[in-house]
Design a protein around this nucleic acid. Structure first.
Lengths: 204, 204
DNA sequence: TGACATACATACCAATCGGTAGGTATAACA
DNA sequence: TGTTATACCTACCGATTGGTATGTATGTCA
């Protein structure tokens, strides 16, 4: 028998508190500059507790990617796309919704996945593999949606869904990154509109 | 009178050695993780010399952006574009040339300007302003080239050169970032081809 | 030739870093 | 009830960080 519910539920709560605080600290400062001490001080968790759940800082970072970021991308960019029949309309709606919901802090900090990709890919292979797994999930999901769209005759037949997926994910990340550097919602919207124009050009 | 040539020339040499080593260290690890000690050990420069030319680490980082990165972008992405009559053909050539000349280390480390943009924009406003100045130069240069192209009837009249410039810079950075995460030249080329296709769609 | 500034060089410093050792309190289980 | 594992907690550690204080060698200039 495993431990009773009372205990293991509390465990997960503490673990989740640490994970969430780590996510925010990493999002704001990057992984390498993220301070364990800061994560502890923003919560009332002690160092012993943190190192009980995560043997190293690296493991904590990995968990943020595997559990939080993968889930975020899945929920926002993949699931609604796969449900829809028309991937072009669906993606346009997702982009517009994302633009509307975005906060000043988000503009300032950009995409948490791309942040980790750019910072950690050359530095730590474990990070790179995990981040790339999320990107691949994103690209494959997008590719599938556009294949479906082609089957339904809603997307041009003479384009390669795989290439479209790569281009879309890349330019979305580029768009967010540009807005982050310029700290400008205008640039975000102008770039988003260009992506939407590109999408409309794929109509079949 | 200023100091004689012998002296001030040597000065600039030492300064340039520091700047170059700093560039490489920052390119490989990011600014915050870049180690002054490492920069000194890869050169035979002492800490006294470094802090003689650059009062703080931040000033050293600023100089890398202002002097090295601005120059790189200008030489590779702006000058050849402004010389040409046809911006679309010119940019295609630049993209193809960049793809051919890129090394494994470059794939691994990505774009030094985008790296600093994503890492430092939320953390230090001085960095953000300097990086954004380079991006703006890049965008404005691209915009001018496309305006010229419109005047010569080589670019569609019903597109906004400013939006095109934003979209191009953003998707180029996104493309390099995606290839860096995937550590894949294939992805770089596929994404680059999509950008070229986009460019061809702008023909007037 | 003497005064002064430039261009380094060396030794040191406080602060912060991630991580660990060793304890305790609690709950599960035999 | 005694044993054992889980879930913490506190105090400490060595290493590294950017930065500084002090000294010196050299070249400039009046």
């Amino acid at each position: 028998m495993q431990s009773a519910s009372t205990n293991s539920e509390q465990n997960l709560v503490t673990r989740q508190i640490i994970l969430q605080a780590a996510y925010e600290e990493i999002y704001a400062r990057g992984f390498q500059a993220a301070s364990i001490a800061k994560i502890l001080s923003t919560t009332d968790v002690t160092k012993g507790a943190l190192y009980h759940y995560f043997p190293t800082k690296l493991d904590l970072g990995y968990a943020v990617v595997d559990e939080l970021l993968a889930e975020q991308i899945q929920a926002r960019w993949i699931e609604p796309l796969l449900i829809a029949d028309d991937p072009i309309s669906a993606l346009k709606e997702i982009i517009i919704a994302a633009g509307q919901e975005i906060s000043e802090e988000d503009i300032q900090c950009g995409c948490p996945l791309n942040n980790l990709a750019q910072e950690m890919s050359p530095v730590d292979e474990g990070f790179r593999l995990r981040v790339e797994a999320v990107y691949k999930m994103w690209r494959v999901g997008t590719e599938e949606a556009f294949k479906q769209g082609q089957r339904h005759g809603l997307v041009k037949q003479n384009v390669d869904p795989k290439n479209i997926a790569i281009m879309l994910v890349a330019s979305l990340e580029g768009c967010i990154g540009m807005a982050k550097s310029a700290q400008s919602k205008n640039i975000l919207y102008q770039c988003g509109q260009s992506i939407i124009d590109y999408l409309d050009g794929l109509r079949g």
